[in-house]
Amino acid sequence: MISAFGDLNLNYLVSVTFVSLYVSTVAVAISTLISLPVSIGVAFGNFPGKRLLTTVINTGMGFPSVVVGLVVLLTLSNAGPLGELQLLFTPQAMIISQTILATPVVLSVSISAVESVGGDLRDAAFAAGGTNTDVGLLVLREARYGIVTAVLAGYGRAISEVGSVLIVGGNIVYPPEQTSFTRTLTTAVTVEARRGNYETGLALGAVLLVLVLVVNALGGRIRDGGRA
């Protein structure tokens, strides 16, 4: 392990880790902001096509990330509808594709968490003088353990994903210090694997694992802290 790390430029390791964290964290934050209100609407709303929408969301959990990456690539490429934004091969493009990948996961788990909050509690919040917004907030509060799980699941999907960030990010590092621009821990592993630097690849993988572990430990703390 130590020799594996020894091959790695510290600046490279830190910048790759930072890009991974930055892209996934922003993507999951956006996913969560989208998912919380939508999960309330889907769980408690009665509208035509609700079943279809739920099926689509659940299918979204299995979206192949390379396909999402390809679609985002085509959308952001110069000839694509959003080509003018010049976002292709930037961290922003990676955030877009990871948001698309993480949202169905966060949303789907949030919906089941929110649905499990009983109607009696919603009525109690309403009877105590709450507005519909108050009732929604109360429901999110009651569903908080499930929602933390949803966010962690989404984070796991985003940070371990390689296909779409490779396609839309371009796996770019800048010389001379090997500073990552769009290279994440996962895409760095593919580079090392292709070069035959298996030990370095494993070392990067270990860093990734530790990150996921830390994020989950933090999430677990938030979840259990709320129990008091």
Binding site: A124, A125, A127, T131
Partner: peptide, 18 residues
Amino acid sequence: LRLRRRIGLVAQDRSLFS
């Protein structure tokens, strides 16, 4: 809403928040 807030309702079943 203002009127509703002058009324309190206690349901039959346990309905306390966690």
